[in-house]
Structure formats: structure tokens, C-alpha cells
Amino acid sequence: MRLFLPLVITFICGIVMILHFFIPHRPISTIGDGLTDWYMIVASAAIFLGAANLVQVHVHRINTKARNWKYSPVVLIGFIAMMATGLLWGVEETLPFDYMFQTMIVPMGATMFSLLAFFVASAAFRAFRASNWRATLLLASAFIVMLGRVPIGGMIWKQIPIISEWMMQVPNMAGQRAVMIGAALGVVATSLRMIFGIERSYLGGAD
């Protein structure tokens, strides 16, 4: 019984969004447009839950002197600093909130992103120890495409960039299309199971 109302809401919202795609007439269009805005608002409201959890977890770690608890104040100070500056002075450019974002969060994000250069090299190095012929094919095609995208590839053999481009346009497209079509059918089946209440574990109830 406790799941009945949520399942009805899931069903109605799901069906309205599907109909909204095909029926431009009111009231479907109005309800569909409204629902698209509303669910974004509801999902955004949930961020306070996460923030509360973050604070709760780190305060608990400090209180219980858990492992690495000395870094929990760093989390809390960073969090409170951004919240305070944003709420007190606003988010416009040149204000403290924006300054901290530009000088600290942006470089840290870019640094984490740039770690990929090292990780992609280590992943490629490990993958070169190919265990079967298909794995060999994977790294052979990776190698050819990589070479084709740098000047040295053309200097080794002028056909490499052409072959590289062909591999991206033909077999790559074929493989990607097969994965996309299969995944799309998976999405359709999963969505139908959600909408019709066949899959309901996300509500925390019995299956």
C-alpha cells in the first residue's frame, strides 16, 4: 500500500512525458512542459539532502576520531566558505565566491582531468599485453587511429591518416551504431518496467 501512490505517480509522469512527445495539443503540451520544469526543481531541492549528509558524515568522523578525521575539517571549511561567500555576497564576477571558484575549483578540476593523460598511457601500456586476437585487434586499431592524428603518422606512411579517418568513419560507426541501438532497446525496456511498476526496487520496497 505504501508503494501504491508512488507507483501511480511514476506511471502518470511517465505516460505524460511519452504522450507529450507526440501530442502538441493542450493540455498534454502544458502538463508536459510543466512536468519538465517541475522535476528539475524537485531534483535540485534534493541537493540539500546531500549537503546535510556531507556535513553529518564529517562531523561524525571528527567526533569519533575516525581514520583520517583530521582532514574532515578541511571539507567543512571549504564547504562553509563557499556557502557563506555565495549567500552573503552573491555569485557575480570578481566577488569572493567567484574568485575562489576561478582560482581553486577550476584549477583542481583541470588537474584531475589532466590526470587522464597519465592514466590513458598506463591503460594503453597494460592493454598492449593482449590476451587474445580480438584484444590485439582493439589495440591495433587504437594505434593506427592515434598515429593518424599526429604529424608523425603521415611522415611514416602517407596512407596512415587516410586509413585512420576511414576507420573512424566506417567500422567505428558500425560498432557504435550497434551498441547505441542495443542500448536504446535496453532503455525502452527498463523505462517500461519502471513506468508500469514491474521494477520498483528504487522505491525501497519489495520487488
Binding site: A43, A46, G50, Y202, L203
Partner: peptide, 11 residues
């Protein structure tokens, strides 16, 4: 995501 945290805890 906060909602995913909530659902994960329930699940």
C-alpha cells in the same frame, strides 16, 4: 547526487 544517495540507502 543526493537523490542517488537516498535511493542507494533505501535499496
Amino acid at each position: 547526487r543526493s537523490v542517488v544517495m537516498s535511493v542507494s540507502q533505501e535499496v
